[in-house]
Every structure is written in structure tokens, then in C-alpha cells.
């Protein structure tokens, strides 16, 4: 069982709240999404594990048991920013603990650029039935309980 923490502080909006059908229709996988507070902040590791992918706009942390991979996107279409406004605080291959800062960014700047800073948090290769205790829509702290993956 993997307890997944909120990678950013903000408001839980669910995948339906992501303005991109790729996530809203759960094509990538089940999960939820957080609309982050519009202030500079750090996106953190949602679980203990190893960073298998770290890009300025997204990252994947793989749990210690090797089959629970969590994908976090920092905003929609932020790949187009090519890293501008994002500072990497860790590296691919690093072992990390849940809550460890991985990327410094500013959701307010992303929003000012006309893009949604909403952050999908996705359980990779999971069925929807594998997720439980999904946080209800509303405010959540960075590191708050987001969902459980069994």
C-alpha cells in the first residue's frame, strides 16, 4: 500500500478539474489534481522512492517496492515553457523521501502566461479501483494525504 501526499499546496479539484482531456478523461491513469496557490513554492515528492523521470514540468517517483509509480505534472502545456521559471532541486536516479522538494516554481507566473497551473497527480499502470481515501475537493496542505494506492 502506498500513501500518496499532495505535492503542492492548493485546492483539490479532481481530474475533472484539469483543462486537458488527457488527464480529465484519465487517459494517463487514475488520480486527482490540485489547483496550486498562486505564489512561489516547491513541488515535493508524493511518496518515498526513486526519481525515474525529472523534467521541469513533470516528474515520476517510483516507490521502493518498484511497481507504484506516481506522475506529477506542474500545470497544463507547461512543457512549452522549456524549463523557464522552473528550478530542479534534485536529479533523476535520486532516492527521495515523501515531502522532499524536487522543483521550485511559481504557479502565479504560469497562470500569468495564460496556462493552467493545475497539477495532476497520477497513479501509473493502476486501475481506478486501486485508489481509495481520495481527498475530497477543498483546500490541502503540501504533504497532506491525497490518496491511498493499494
Amino acid at each position: 500500500m502506498t500513501r500518496v501526499l499532495a505535492p503542492v499546496r492548493g485546492r483539490v479539484v479532481g481530474l475533472a478539474g484539469v483543462p486537458d482531456p488527457l488527464f480529465a478523461q484519465a487517459m494517463v491513469g487514475p488520480g486527482t489534481a490540485i489547483d496550486p496557490v498562486r505564489e512561489p513554492g516547491e513541488a515535493v515528492a508524493p511518496i518515498d522512492g526513486r526519481i525515474v523521470k525529472l523534467r521541469p514540468h513533470c516528474y515520476v517517483v517510483l516507490g521502493a517496492e518498484g511497481h507504484h509509480g506516481i506522475l506529477v505534472y506542474l500545470g497544463v502545456d507547461t512543457v512549452e515553457l522549456k524549463g523557464t521559471g522552473f528550478e530542479l532541486l534534485a536529479a533523476e536516479g535520486d532516492r527521495v523521501v515523501a515531502g522532499q522538494p524536487l522543483i521550485r516554481w511559481n504557479p502565479a507566473e504560469v497562470a500569468a502566461g495564460g496556462r493552467s497551473p493545475v497539477c495532476p497527480v497520477i497513479a501509473l499502470d493502476a486501475g481506478i479501483e486501486a485508489l481509495s481515501d481520495v481527498a475530497v475537493p477543498g483546500d490541502i496542505e503540501c504533504g497532506g494525504a491525497l490518496f491511498t494506492w493499494t
Binding site: 494517463v28 491513469g29 525515474v52 523521470k53 515520476v60 517510483l62 509509480g69 506522475l71 501509473l124 499502470d125
Partner: peptide, 10 residues
């Protein structure tokens, strides 16, 4: 068939 594997393949 694994999205995790594909993302890691990069």
C-alpha cells in the same frame, strides 16, 4: 503496455 515503462524509456 506500461505507461510507467514508457515514461522511463524517455
Amino acid at each position: 503496455k506500461s505507461i510507467l515503462s514508457l515514461l522511463a524509456l524517455d
